[in-house]
Write a protein that binds this DNA or RNA. Sequence first.
DNA 1: CTCTGATGCAAGTGCTCACTTGCATCAGCG
DNA 2: CGCTGATGCAAGTGAGCACTTGCATCAGAG
Lengths: 187, 187
Amino acid sequence: MASRVTDQAVYDAVLKVIADQGYERATTRAIADAAGINEVTLFRRFTSKENLLRQAVRSNFVGFALDLDAPGDDVAADLLTIVSYYARLYETRGGVVLTLMREAKFSPDVAAVLAEPEALLEKVDEVILHHQRRGALVTEPPRHTFFALVGPLMMRSFARRVDQRATQAPADPEAVVRRFLDGHRPG
Amino acid sequence: MASRVTDQAVYDAVLKVIADQGYERATTRAIADAAGINEVTLFRRFTSKENLLRQAVRSNFVGFALDLDAPGDDVAADLLTIVSYYARLYETRGGVVLTLMREAKFSPDVAAVLAEPEALLEKVDEVILHHQRRGALVTEPPRHTFFALVGPLMMRSFARRVDQRATQAPADPEAVVRRFLDGHRPG
DNA sequence: CTCTGATGCAAGTGCTCACTTGCATCAGCG
DNA sequence: CGCTGATGCAAGTGAGCACTTGCATCAGAG
């Protein structure tokens, strides 16, 4: 029988609690409370705190993965896929993502969990390399290109966190790609 | 009788350990080991972990405070004092500073300790306000002006952390102030 | 209605960690 | 040499937390 509180609802709770407490300070008790279930039930359903985070991350960050398996001829289109993904990610989950990235440096658990979304990055690298080889992008380490592309989105999310008053409009992925290509098409 | 291991040596150890582990994961045991003293001695001399951090921060960040009590007529000179202070801070302690700033959001202890250096910021605000009133700077919330001034230094420190390979030259405070004033002198 | 599987609750286990205590040692000062 | 005050070491205390166990309850499928 399905559970009264859905898995996704629990995932939302985890991410929310982690967003304001950080992973290590987020007690399983607090997570359970936020999800409206008993702590024991939490463990019965998700085994461990780390596994719970893993499933939440998988479901929310990795789940709706990009259609990048076969990069095509159109640089702009492929980059747009990437930017749209990260724009949406930071738009909806910016808080947790930044928090987890910070904590990954110190907490082996968090680092382990983030290994999975990191694998996404390798896919992205391949796409960038593909277009570099086709002569559509300046040649540099793909990860650099990636940061140049997505960095502005991260910064926006970061700035919003530091400076609340800025009611910034959500980033327009098409504009981001356009601006980026202006600077990264080989002359 | 003075202690064989000086207070400053212990402070260095704390800041170093916190820089790579973060405050919460930095056990007093690890700190004592890094300082080359017994954990018990640590407590006998510094009372508590939080107090130890406080004294380390006080000694390293607040101790050599700025000569800003009486802002003068020369905007450039006063801003240079500020920038030089933060340039040196990030140059020598960038790692810990960023780590502590991150953790302050989650850990009340860290937040409490950082309240003291925060007070420095109020002094800075006053100086900026002073020069705004004298018509030497564009009018905006002083904290914004501060971030515009010091932000680049923080970003440089942050970037160095993310992207190791960049052997960036240390920031030149005079250049920073010059560039800043170009954009913030009222037209 | 009955059976089953998921849930809640109370209590407990084991680990880590900040912090303590008692005692032996050691360096400098008279 | 004898005193003092700081240090080291071994052991322990108490709290927080991830995770477990046993039992009662309750909702849905047959």
